[in-house]
């Protein structure tokens, strides 16, 4: 079995302590949460940090709660906790849908929400889901806290705005009544990364789409979002034709690359098809229908 290179290990006892450790150990230090992205990369020796700062003891980052119109999700919330959370499911079915198909149940027991976003893998599912709901990332550094819209959080593949001595502490999702959301993913096999996936959240005013968010992953969509398709839909009737047209726009504006998961034309097709499907399911939920989460 492949094994990581040597490093120093330190355990943070608080967010402030973690930041202090990051500062002291310098740019070759890395935070480790679940480690389910970082440790495999270290085994393959693609990542070779000199120091790992373990943040698993930071209970302050493990909370999920509602607070003045915001759903607040701590960075150290595990995938499995997000999946099981009743309050998350009640307000944003998109997360329940997504979590059912992220990795596998054992990985979900340990991988974290914050780790997912900070890993910034171009195929990360939660990046698309948080992008769809226009979440706000809360980042803390030595100088205090700042907030960044998730759509400005990723600066490129495996890159984010989180600085060398900063830590993502929380994601905040504004709650607005009358919405429905959904996530749909094509994978080659249970537990595989997405060939493509789309998430949608949609608010209806009668049968008119009053607002909409569309997230896409694995297809090279800027900011994991389909903004052109969102612009198109706003104010239009929530019909099959509108959703199909939105899908076509999303497909046209993404920029997938070929790999063993599929060729470009197929991924582009999926971007459209899955956008349409996610919108359809989100609309049904917004209209009050009970739509089951799809299994792995």
């Amino acid at each position: 079995m492949q094994v990581p290179a040597q490093f120093e290990y330190a355990r943070a006892t608080s967010v402030a302590h973690a930041i202090d450790l990051l500062r002291r150990h310098g740019p070759e230090s890395r935070l480790v949460a679940g480690g389910h992205s970082l440790i495999p990369m270290m085994k393959l020796r693609i990542a070779n940090p000199e120091t790992l700062i373990d943040i698993n003891d930071l209970a302050e980052l493990t909370r999920i709660g509602l607070d003045s119109g915001l759903l607040r999700i701590g960075a150290l919330v595990r995938h499995a906790e997000l999946l099981d959370s009743a309050v998350v499911g009640e307000h944003f079915a998109i997360f329940r849908d997504a979590e059912r198909v992220i990795a596998d149940p054992i990985v979900r027991n340990w991988g974290t929400v914050g780790g997912s976003l900070c890993q910034a893998d171009p195929s990360e599912d939660l990046s698309a889901a948080f992008s769809a709901v226009r979440a706000i990332a809360v980042i803390q550094g030595a100088d205090g806290e700042r907030t960044v819209p998730v759509r400005e959080f990723h600066t490129g593949p495996y890159q984010t705005v989180v600085g060398a001595a900063e830590i993502l502490t929380e994601l905040r999702v504004p709650i607005r009544p009358g919405g429905g959301s959904a996530y749909t993913k094509v994978e080659r096999r249970a537990g595989d990364w997405a060939v493509a996936a789309a998430g949608a959240v949609l608010w209806l005013d009668g049968n008119t789409v009053s607002d909409v968010g569309i997230g896409l992953t694995a297809v090279g969509a800027a900011h994991f979002a389909a903004e052109e398709a969102e612009d198109f839909l706003r104010g239009r009737p929530a019909t099959e034709e509108s959703f199909a047209a939105a899908g076509r726009i999303a497909a046209a504006h993404c920029n997938p690359v070929a790999d063993q998961r599929g060729p470009v034309d197929y991924k582009r097709h999926l971007a459209g098809e899955l956008t349409t499907r996610a919108l359809r399911r989100a609309a049904a939920r917004a209209a009050g229908a009970a739509v089951e989460t799809e299994g792995a």
Partner: peptide
């Protein structure tokens, strides 16, 4: 099991 929850022990450090 790690604190009562199944994990993949190849992806957890002994130090953790």
């Amino acid at each position: 099991w790690f604190d009562g929850t199944p994990v993949k022990s190849c992806t957890v450090l002994a130090a953790m």
